[in-house]
Design a protein around this nucleic acid. Sequence first.
DNA 1: AATCGTTCCTGATAGC
DNA 2: TGCTATCAGGAACGAT
Length: 271
Amino acid sequence: MPELPEVETIRQDLSCLIVGRKVLAIATDTPGKILPSLELVKKAVVGSTIKRIDRRAKLLQLILDNGKVIAFHLKMSGRLLVRKVGEEKDDWQHIVITLSEGLELRFADMRKFGWMKLFLSREDLKKVLTEYGPEPLSDLTLKKFREILEANGRAIKIVLMDQEKIAGIGNIYANEALFLAKIDPRTPADKIKEKQAAALFLAIEKVLRLGLRYRGASDRYYLDALGQKGHFQEHFLVYGRQGKECGSCKGMIKRIALGGRGTFYCPSCQK
DNA sequence: AATCGTTCCTGATAGC
DNA sequence: TGCTATCAGGAACGAT
């Protein structure tokens, strides 16, 4: 599932591939996934040029030269693919944005949880973006991190995945970071000691950077903008490894449900 | 205000 | 073998 490293990898790809291209047309077979509506989006963006690609949390934004912004949320299974016009249709392809010079930006989504949304101005977008917590790789400091933990009594894994608290961390990176920091995912955030908080702060940075280095985790559906898999899934220490041996203590990785999400940890390493 | 349950959707998997 | 039922899961939303 696309989290910060996956969305950032796509952002970098799109920056190289489609910045400077003009939007010629938009088509879809799932109009409900285009907000506020296909017609309004067409009217606002067809004819404009893509100036820049930004990312904030898991939200990807095409910044257009007319001041409008198109944002995408990939949710569980969304893909943004750059293809040449006429190339074979992609699996679960639902939105096609035709660009100048024979390219297409395709939004494909097996689960159909993802969406595309028009923002009429940078100010409108900014309002939404301020609702996200700090970016863990650029804005978050240890001091700020400790304040977040102290202010929240819910399980640490729930807090890590809460986009209003910290932006961009999803299930995979939350599980992996907690393993590296040797913290039980159920520990109430406000009960985490100073030393453990510092270890977790570093572990978050480490797993996110590792995810970026491997161009994301293609656990199930994730592909980069050219349709290539990432490789971080080959280095998972706990995620999806229930019943397997812990690489650190030779105990067995356990799976539990936390906040309705699959949670993976080593009971003997993570106290 | 904080937190919980429900909803969206479809492929994978379990059970018979 | 082939059918049906269940489940997973990010985040918005309504309910408590």
